[in-house]
Write a protein that binds this DNA or RNA. Structure first.
Lengths: 226, 226
DNA sequence: AGATTGTTCTTCGTATACACTTCGCCTGGA
DNA sequence: TCCAGGCGAAGTGTATACGAAGAACAATCT
């Protein structure tokens, strides 16, 4: 609840509202604030050690991003990703990541490919070490990197936002996705390296399909709505 | 046990910040505030007749939506859509609207189709009357309706946001797109009615391709960056 | 009980204050 | 004339206080 997040955010150069937004997003994704939980401005202000104004501004953005729902005159509650919308998210993500893969394949420089392989290696190693947390990090890093290589800022920002929500669902649904996804990742990077957009798209779709299946399993009863 | 019988009486009055956001978006899209123009909080507050707080909250959301850029400690300026990002926008939009068309085809009820045909008729009529403004409205309405029929809230909200930006570019680039697009629309609605997702996707892609060509022409020199 | 009326919590908007940055202007010196 | 550097205005970032109105809940009355 209120305990562990109380830090002194008030000393940096970044605007407070951004720090609050970041902390809020993180707390929601990590499950420190659970779906349906009421978020009063005063409480958040106290949790983060700031005044209400930065909190309000952060809340509006969090609403725009879909992490909270604001009911007029009644305040904000943490949004509830229902298993219905998980399917919807993946349907969109599938298309977007397929496009990203294609663009990445068409535009990747040798240096880009090297960077991807590097992530792949680290991921493989972390998998051997059973360091699931690190595996998840590297998984994100790989996807984000591909997005960046795609060179399309719109695609990138939209997909990133979606990706955060996916992670949220994963966390709530407990276990991170297992090691076998790295085989798919290798396929994907191979395709990108080949420069064959079509093939990269297919690899992305295959990967997303598998990821969805996993997410769907986890989503069943991993959290309760309301 | 949290009571779920939400009365919806309070939902009609929208908060000032939302009205400000709406007005701000509209003003930017209409070109009342031009790209690069400085938006000081005091000025906006005065323009809209409210205090700084609602303005600030609206600005944060407008930033998240990509209509303004906020430079820390220096304030907000209207964002500048460069012709590079127009291509990027359409690349994404193509994928999203194709998905929307497919889902709509798979899920449309007869009533949905009737509603689409109604819009088509009105559009045709407005075109005859040379009422370009109304044509543009109906064009939006049609796309938005298809999004709604798709039944995927993520897809819907993301694409809507993108759509606003497209309109922005169109306005800045002067002339609305011409009458011939209605032929494509008819193809699209026919495809949706048929229930053939594949065909609906193809129709959407064809339409988007043509729209992009038009947008691209307009974008050349229709406005100046910075 | 069932309806009505308070009471309280909270949001929403306004207003004000102030530290601190940024920027443009101005002045003085080369 | 041109540059340097100082000075002050403008504007953001943040905090705080306050009043109004809505919603939820409790208490009270018929």
């Amino acid at each position: 609840m209120t305990g562990d997040l109380r830090g002194k955010l008030g000393a940096q150069h970044l605007p407070l509202r951004d720090q609050v937004l970041f902390a809020l997003r993180t707390a929601i994704i990590n499950g420190d604030y659970l779906p349906g939980e009421r978020l009063t401005e005063d409480r958040l202000a106290e949790d983060f050690g700031v005044s209400r104004n930065p909190v309000r501004e952060a809340l509006r953005v969090a609403e725009a991003e879909g992490f909270v729902v604001i009911l007029p005159r009644r305040g904000a509650v943490v949004a509830s990703p229902s298993s219905g919308t998980v399917a919807d998210m993946f349907a969109v993500r599938e298309r977007l990541e397929a496009l990203a893969a294609r663009l990445a394949a068409e535009r990747a420089t040798p240096a880009d490919v090297t960077a991807l392989r590097e992530l792949l290696d680290q991921g493989h190693e972390a998998t051997e070490r059973q360091d699931l947390r690190r595996v998840a990090e590297l998984n994100s890093a790989l996807h984000l990197r591909i997005l960046q290589i795609s060179g399309n800022p719109w695609l990138s920002s939209i997909t990133k936002a979606l990706y955060l929500h996916v992670q949220w669902v994963f966390r709530l649904g407990a276990a991170e996705r297992a090691p076998h996804s790295w085989a798919e990742h290798i396929q994907l990077v191979d395709a990108i390296e080949s420069g064959d957009g079509q093939r990269a798209e297919r690899a992305a779709l295959a990967h997303l399909g598998a990821a969805y299946a996993a997410a769907h399993e986890n989503a069943e009863g991993g959290y309760q709505a309301r």
